[in-house]
Design a protein around this nucleic acid. Structure first.
Lengths: 367, 367
DNA sequence: AAGCCATCTGTAAACGTTTACTGAGTTGGC
DNA sequence: GCCAACTCAGTAAACGTTTACAGATGGCTT
């Protein structure tokens, strides 16, 4: 792995100055003969432009960072899936940070923008503290925040609307005749937990249903927490006829416990999840879920960022992505039609002619 | 966003030379008084060290890239989940590339190592062509390949053993008394497709079962392909009693179609998936699946890479991760015990005292 | 034929660090 | 009290680019 060639090496080889080499490589007007010599030399030497030196001089890295709480969370992954191709098309690389929802880590990331290893940042913090806002104000590169931020904060911002989302779900359950609707929520000191709790209370009121503390159970956002919470709920209020779950994982835990308890879904208890992750369509019964538009939020965020990288001076914008209720069997009782046509068999499939993008696994026979 | 301070600014402010500033910031021996002055100035100015300039001089970026075929694929995500924290702990940032399994893109990534924007690369190519190997040989930074690579290739390599994996699955099905075991495979020109096809044929032979072309169906690696393939299989061979699916998504499609056709799983047809993604545990019936150890492979890869970054001269290593059969209801008929204890309700959960790491969703009430 | 202009190329500085080298000042040995 | 040795700090070069500026060359115009 000997040291690679630089423009100096090329300049020598081609018998020109490094300025000429640079000009040719950047497509600036140059005499044909010079272009030919430089390109020939570069080709022979297998020259590749050093991105670090280039960044130092040009003050751009063509890298963008995305910081999320948990890299294993399907919600963030839906965002990454949108963000990556857009960045790639615009000539940027994607740097990933997983902060484990630790505020100090998030602030570190903001602070490290001063290192100038990226041109911009998309961040999705779980909680937004004063310290976040302070650091944000002093950030040395454009930032887009996915999630709520106090009004008046001068930053590009993309929000979901889980208030309306919860409302959609409760309206749906109410229309189905459900009247004892429990809430299985996550921790109240997280942004989603707090707002979903409040939205639940509000929606009940508007529907003319009484708010009952006994119908609310709080745990963390995982499947096991959902299972535990629902077991407790069933013991306390055996007559519940619907469950509003603060995310899909909680809802899956709920399905586990309901099945074990012999309750039919949705006949006895209807279940609604939230986030509409791919798990919702995979479960059985398939899960009605409120999509908060993770994909759309990711897309909006990256677009805001790219736009700002072009025009750093424009006013900050706020984009709110509307929620959408995706009805499946856990409330309707009917499995949705399979999302594909069985009659059309892939032509030539037996010949192995499939175009073969994405396969689901890497591997290697042991030999 | 005015230009940030540099060591020059600090040097002026502190009344010392830039060399002293650099020494202080790097912890090299310096007089107390100087240290104090420099740190004070740095603090006041909110100095953050420029990573690009530092990289240029030191010839290391503290970045590592991971290139995968498809960022949406749970198999790669399982790897990323392992890789990211290890890198972070070692002081490296993670750069993600999604190549859409396009060979040219993969080769581009290898080639771009010459830009020196990362110190090393972990790559998981779907197909390995001559061109890959050529470029690999000339790569300007350490590379670890996840997936098969021809014997003798001088590169750190992590492999799954899908051959043994398929074997485990077929042994299991055979032991359950199944004799007409179909294969739903992916494209034969991918590494996984090819080797799973071969392993299926081999395993049948060792089990003394006849190989029958009519029992093999090929599509792509998605749920819809699985559904289509199984519909065709059922039409052609109504008497099949087991399905070996080349990945979990295909298996989910299979479950859809079997259910629609009124076949009971596993009584009439047993189903085995592959990769043991989180979808396998979420489906109903839950899916027996062959784990190829994606997480372990990710971990092994990043460890190989970090090791090589320390000692560039050591011999290339090969790590093979053994497969594991995870038996669930789609073959055994019994839902596995819930992986959590329902009796222990989270203490204090109602008080919202949960530590609240990872929540499943970002959001923001519309106001 | 002189002067001008256009076109191209080379020189050198700059981006923000790290670090080899040198020299100044201090300490200590004898 | 002189010289050696040591400690610390400053100067300057280097990392590999881009680019402002100036110089060179040649073709036109007049």
């Amino acid at each position: 792995m000997a040291d690679g060639p630089t423009i100096n090496t090329i300049a020598e080889r081609a018998g020109v100055s490094i300025a000429s080499v640079s000009r040719v490589l950047n497509g600036l007007p140059t005499r044909q003969e010079t272009i030919r010599k430089v390109l020939a030399a570069a080709e022979e030497l297998g020259y590749v432009r050093n991105a670090v030196a280039r960044s130092l001089k040009s003050r751009r890295t063509n890298q963008v960072a995305f910081a999320m709480a948990d890299i294993g969370n399907p919600v963030y992954l839906a965002m990454v899936r949108q963000i990556q191709p857009v960045l790639k098309a615009a000539g940027y690389r994607l740097v990933l940070h997983s902060t484990d929802a630790i505020a100090a880590d998030e602030i570190d990331v903001l602070h490290s923008l001063g290192e100038r290893y990226v041109d911009g940042l998309i961040m999705s913090p779980l909680r937004v503290t004063e310290a976040h806002l302070e650091t944000l104000k002093a950030a040395r590169a454009p930032v887009v925040i996915i999630g709520s931020v106090p009004d008046g904060t001068r930053v590009d911002n993309v929000r979901a609307d889980s208030r309306t989302g919860v409302r959609l779900a409760l309206d749906h359950l109410h229309a189905l005749g459900r009247r004892r609707i429990a809430l299985v929520n996550g921790p109240l000191d997280t942004v989603p937990g707090a707002s979903r709790g409040a939205a639940y209370a509000e929606a009940l009121e508007e529907l003319g249903l009484p708010y009952d503390d006994g119908l609310v159970e709080i745990g963390d956002f995982y499947r096991a927490d959902g299972a535990r919470a629902v077991a407790a709920l069933l013991a306390r209020r055996p007559d519940i006829d619907a469950l509003m779950c603060a995310n899909d994982l909680i809802a899956l835990g709920a399905l586990d416990v309901l099945r074990a308890a012999g309750r039919r879904v949705p006949e006895d208890v209807a279940v609604v999840g939230m986030d509409d992750t791919e798990l919702a369509a995979a479960s059985y019964p398939s899960l009605t879920s409120v999509s908060l538009g993770s994909a759309e939020r990711g897309k909006a965020a990256v677009e805001l960022l790219l736009d700002r990288l072009q025009r750093g001076d424009r006013e900050p914008r706020l984009v709110t992505v509307p929620p959408r209720l995706v009805v499946r069997a856990s409330t309707s009782g009917e499995e949705p039609a399979l999302p594909y046509d069985l009659t059309t068999n892939t032509p030539g499939a037996l010949a192995g002619a499939a175009p073969g993008h994405q396969s689901s696994a890497q591997e290697g026979g042991a030999g």
